[in-house]
């Protein structure tokens, strides 16, 4: 009971922060919307993939982008908790490190999924108004997309928490952006099909767990994918389980 309440406590805090920091939310969904509108619309005006509009093609990639950026950075943000000493208050409470970790993940997942819902609504609005053809919106496809993203987010928030728990100050944010988040995004097939890649790139793309999340989203929203859905879900599940494992360990070893 105590542990569950503790997890709720941490979630409650993250959710309140999310509610108050509107600028953070807006900043993190404006960029995916721009990708969707400008890159999708611009490139889509002269490119189509096997009869599929490019803008529709990158929509799952854009959802993934929002999830990736927002969840990794949510995790890294723990370095801020350290800096303002809030983390001390949490770590001295009678709560297992695993519960603290879970509370953080659920907080991050909630924040990120709310952003995803907004983006899905944008996609739906485009589809319903006839401005975009090719996306398949149904209760099932939406729920499946959310489920796939949830699994991926758990792993991605964990990566962020692992990095953040080892960092001493927030100065390294930019490095994480350049060396982790952008590569994961660009090398995931979020922006291009992955069945005919240059030889140097293919192996990297195929070991990137984000690739499988994007592929699963394509299955849900476009009805076609490179891998079987079950493989996509299996890969991201394994990825997330491993990350949670490492993350819980990193939390136990964290220095203040």
């Amino acid at each position: 009971m105590g542990e569950l309440k503790g997890i709720y406590a941490l979630w409650y805090r993250e959710f309140k922060v999310f509610q108050r920091e509107k600028s953070r939310v807006i900043a993190s969904i404006i960029s995916p919307i721009l990708w969707f509108l400008v890159i999708g619309g611009g490139i889509g005006s002269f490119v189509s993939l096997n009869g599929l509009n490019y803008q529709a093609f990158i929509f799952p990639g854009v959802l993934m982008q929002a999830a990736l950026f927002s969840s990794v950075f949510f995790g890294v943000y723990i370095v801020w908790d350290k800096k303002i000493d809030f983390l001390k208050e949490v770590l001295v409470a009678p709560l297992s490190r695993t519960s603290i970790f879970i509370g953080k993940i659920l907080g991050g997942a909630t924040d990120t999924l709310i952003q995803i819902v907004i983006l899905l609504a944008v996609g739906y609005a485009f589809t319903a108004s006839g401005m975009l053809i090719g996306l398949n919106f149904s209760l099932f496809s939406v729920l499946l997309s959310m489920a796939i993203l949830f699994i991926a987010i758990v792993g991605l928030v964990s990566i962020g928490l692992i990095i953040g728990s080892q960092m001493e100050s927030p100065e390294g944010f930019q490095l994480i952006m350049s060396f982790l988040v952008f590569p994961l995004f660009f090398l995931s097939g979020a922006l291009f099909p992955i069945n005919n890649l240059p030889a140097w790139m293919a192996p990297i793309v195929f070991v990137n767990p984000v690739t499988y999340a994007v592929d699963g989203l394509r299955w849900a929203l476009l009805g076609s994918s490179t891998f079987p859905l079950i493989l996509d879900i299996a890969v991201i599940s394994v990825f997330s389980i491993i990350m949670v494992g490492i993350g819980t360990y990193a939390f136990k070893k964290m220095k203040l």
């Binding site: 503790g6 406590a9 303002i84 000493d85």
Partner: peptide
């Protein structure tokens, strides 16, 4: 009671206390 401030400044005073109560079951 820490020497340095360790409450979350984005939460209200009441919320910080509630958070504490929840953490301590």
């Amino acid at each position: 009671v820490f020497q340095d401030p360790s409450s979350d400044e984005i939460l209200t005073g009441y919320e910080n206390l509630k958070l504490h109560g929840l953490l301590y079951d």
